[in-house]
């Protein structure tokens, strides 16, 4: 299948003006959502995913718990307006179940589930907008949400999609490119350099695989830097807030509009 839109032009630019290995803009918002223990919103280009984490907590159904470790329960919902043509997917949609199973199996070896026997960790994923690289965005947001919830992890999980256009590899595909070129998603643990997920729904020549795989692993390291910076920023803000509360002399000056007397 080929479209009229040039995936990669002679100047080495892609349809949205990026270079071959260029990733899209990533914005991370780790602010609290409702009563959730941890949450993260990732805006990756035009793909936007919100993940909230509850737990570890007692499971609603006791029968589903395991005696020696915690169970990861991933539920995903896709907003009907997230795609070009409106389509309402129910919670039992095959595609959604498959994606959530994939995310659960990605995180099972990463989360230290043995620390919480007989409990459950709920991961709720909302897809608000999608423009390619949906699975990587979900995985990255889940990592960050688990971290903000304080769930012990062995390492970050950083995911990215890669594709091959004739012989040139591309990273971080949009919907347009995903429809056109063979692609795969790779999730890596950047510190231990392990891989927790490699998935592909299209066919790729075996000789191209190695190159693409190595590139995707390298891109995972770059995304890790971005995610680490966001976590660090939030932690610094939290530690600052603790300090301001504990020391009597220091007053938190951020957007205070009412100044009480000098007694503080």
């Amino acid at each position: 299948m080929s479209s009229r839109i040039e995936i990669l032009n002679d100047g080495g630019f892609r349809s949205d003006g990026r270079k071959q290995y260029e990733l899209r803009d990533i914005t991370i918002d780790l602010s609290q959502q409702g009563t959730a223990d941890g949450s993260a919103m990732i805006t990756h280009g035009l793909t936007q995913v919100l993940v909230t984490v509850f737990g570890p907590r007692e499971a609603k159904m006791r029968s589903q718990t395991l005696h020696d470790r915690a169970v990861l329960n991933v539920e995903m919902s896709v907003a009907p307006f997230s795609t070009g043509d409106r389509r309402k997917r129910s919670r039992a949609d095959r595609r959604i179940l498959e994606l959530s199973a994939m995310i659960a199996s990605t995180f099972e070896p990463v989360v230290q589930t043995t620390l919480y026997p007989r409990s459950q960790i709920d991961i709720y994923i909302h897809v608000i907008q999608q423009d390619g690289s949906l699975l990587p965005a979900c995985i990255n947001a889940t990592t960050l949400a688990l971290i903000t919830a304080g769930v012990p992890l062995h390492d970050f999980v950083c995911a990215v999609t890669g594709g091959v256009h004739s012989t040139s590899p591309l990273l971080d595909l949009t919907t347009l490119e995903e429809n056109d070129v063979p692609h795969m998603t790779v999730a890596v643990m950047p510190r231990t350099r392990k891989v927790t997920l490699v998935t592909m729904e299209t066919r790729l020549h075996v000789e191209r695989f190695r190159e693409l795989f190595e590139l995707a692993c390298e891109a995972g390291q770059t995304i890790h830097k971005e995610m680490k910076a966001a976590v660090k920023e939030r932690t610094v803000a939290l530690v600052g807030a603790i300090d301001a509360g504990s020391k009597p002399g220091v007053v938190d000056e951020r957007d205070r509009d009412v100044f009480m007397g000098e007694s503080i």
């Binding site: 602010s31 609290q32 959502q33 409702g34 949450s39 035009l46 907003a79 009907p80 307006f81 997230s82 795609t83 070009g84 409106r86 608000i128 907008q129 951020r254 957007d255």
Partner: peptide
């Protein structure tokens, strides 16, 4: 929502300091 014909995000009672909380709704007309 760039893919919808009209959309809005509404929040009631967001806490100013924490940057979270409140009732949050996204609505889109397509």
């Amino acid at each position: 929502a760039p893919l919808a014909n009209g959309s809005a995000r509404l929040n009631i009672g967001k806490m100013a300091r924490e940057g979270g909380g409140g009732t949050e709704i996204v609505a889109a007309a397509k």
